[in-house]
């Protein structure tokens, strides 16, 4: 069993809240718009194979809100700083949704410290006529329902009594996501031009019933990122790592063992 420890890591004056557990090759999980829902079963499983790090992005969760953070470019550059400062090499970067977009932005800038890339229900590019669901327009409760196939997950979240701190974090996360992805909505029109710079084995994982970022994006990313492999997880929505942890973990570790060992 590899439980996580939580600590603050100082990266050039910005304190990042970091969850870390397990041992093995380093793996960095980049969360999506709604932040990190604790040390979930999928993290626990991954930590049996990897040294798994799950930070709150700056301005999200319990991390600092640095003045310089205005857009996704800033956040990607920050994570290159983080990899340097922590002196991590051969990192398996795993990004979900907005975190997938971030993972691509980091990788097109530099893959030097990255060993593989896993994109889950990723935002970041736009297929004309197939917009990502407008998460800012939707009622927050409806959004929770849309994210999952199995509504017991939604029920559990919606019935949760939030602490004062959790409510504050929810609001911070919403504002942080608007800051990064309001206009244009959760993509970078220039990113597609540079995806050929991703030169590490890339794995695109999608829930077959993702109602936030349609699975057509899985096929598109599989096509535009050279050599990418696509895995569709059955009966899963936008967060397959939460809804189907075991198939998800098997997919991640299986890919890394065969393609990025």
């Amino acid at each position: 069993m590899a439980d996580c420890t939580e600590s603050k890591i100082d990266i050039r004056g910005c304190k990042v809240h970091m969850r870390r557990g397990g041992s093995g090759e380093p793996a960095l999980f980049l969360h999506g718009a709604s932040g990190v829902a604790g040390w979930i079963p999928a993290f626990q499983s991954l930590a049996e194979t990897y040294d798994l790090m799950v930070p709150d992005h700056p301005t999200y969760g319990r991390s600092d809100e640095p003045e310089w953070l205005d857009n996704m470019d800033d956040l990607a550059m920050f994570y290159l700083d983080l990899l340097d400062e922590m002196d991590l090499d051969g990192v398996h970067v795993i990004g979900n949704s907005l975190g997938g977009w971030l993972a691509m932005e980091i990788a097109v800038r530099s893959c030097i410290r990255i060993k593989s890339l896993t994109l889950i229900g990723s935002a970041g590019i736009r297929i004309k006529g197939k917009p990502i669901t407008d998460i800012f327009m939707m009622d927050p409760d409806d959004l929770v329902r849309e994210i999952f196939v199995d509504q017991t997950f939604a029920d559990n979240i919606l019935n949760m009594k939030l602490t004062e701190e959790q409510t504050d974090i929810q609001i911070r996360n919403r504002v942080a996501t608007a800051r990064l992805g309001w206009q244009p909505r959760l993509f970078n029109p220039n990113l597609r031009k540079w995806l050929h710079r991703i030169i590490v084995p890339t794995h695109v994982i999608w829930g077959d019933s993702d109602k936030i970022v349609d699975p057509v994006y899985a096929a598109e990313l599989g096509k535009v990122i050279a050599g990418a492999q696509v895995t569709i997880i059955e009966q899963a929505g936008h967060l397959p790592h939460i809804e189907k942890p075991q198939p998800f973990v098997d997919a991640v570790t299986g890919f890394i063992q065969t393609k990025a060992a």
């Binding site: 800012f136 327009m137 939707m138 009622d139 927050p140 409510t167 504050d168 609001i171 911070r172 919403r174 504002v175 996501t177 608007a178 800051r179 309001w182």
Partner: peptide, 22 residues
């Protein structure tokens, strides 16, 4: 006007948003 349209994130201070959501 839905809450989402009325108070998009960051339009108001976090304290005011919290009150409206509550």
């Amino acid at each position: 006007i839905s809450q989402s349209m009325f108070v998009p994130p960051g339009y108001m201070s976090a304290a005011s948003m919290k009150q409206i959501f509550a």
